[in-house]
Amino acid sequence: MTIASGLIDLHIHTTVSDGTDTPEELFGKVKDAGISLFSVTDHDAIRAAKTLSPLCEKDGPRFLPGVEFSCRDRGGKYHILAYGFDPASEPLNALVKRGQLLRADKLLARVAYLRETFGIEFPEEEIFRLLAESNPGKPHLANLMIKYGYAITFRSAMEKYLDRLPSAAEYICPEEAIAGILSGGGIPILAHPLVGSGREYLTDEEMERRLTRLKEYGLAGIEAFYSGFTREMTKGLLEKADKYGLLVTAGSDYHGTNKTVRLGETGLPDPADYPSAFLRFLSRVGV
């Protein structure tokens, strides 16, 4: 039986990371949006699947557990998505744990630095809450500084204090993420491939270098359909997928009200026009 055609969205965040919808709320919205297949890809976390798998089993669209790993090496930053893994797999869970550990460590290091260098203290409950949020960054700390009177504006909090903090020393590197995903039976996909470290898109040459290297590590595909991409950009990425023999996925990167993207907004064409690299991905994950 194939899934009756509807929207497909394979890149979604919930409150388990930095989205604003709880997994339960997302479930309702996914149904309302007419989505027939979706994946939740929280940063370094697979917890949402515990809620969504049983919900979707009973009465709902097809759900595919996913995760998005934040990686970095000297070549820049990468977000690597994983699908189709065994949620109980040890290497994958080890990777998730390591991602969460590094994330918590980064926040606590910043909090300690603020306290030790500037004497800035927040109530412990605020920090626990930030840790619970799972993707806490400098903006969250800036807001806390304003709330507790250490800064008047967001900008001054960032410029005077937070931008001066040393950056974290330890990251998951892409080969580590890809290896962990593969040994967990998953399919590693480079998220929004054209987005580099900052706000600029990668040049063609940089993209080629990146794909050649990641492909060597075992990368299986790229997210060619993405809410932030124009048709032209997608077209270029589909050509790259062909050239490198990569699968293709589609995702909105929906974060609830933290971003303006809508659910299902991926730029995918009608099912009849799905490129074969995308169909191959679907069949790899058993859809």
């Binding site: 550990l101 918590a104 460590d105 606590l108 909090v111 300690a112 920090i127 626990f128 840790l131």
Partner: peptide, 14 residues
């Protein structure tokens, strides 16, 4: 255990 204690535990874990 405060956040400073949590950080200490993370360091031991690492």
């Amino acid at each position: 255990v405060s956040s400073a204690g949590l950080r200490l535990i993370l360091r031991v874990k690492k």
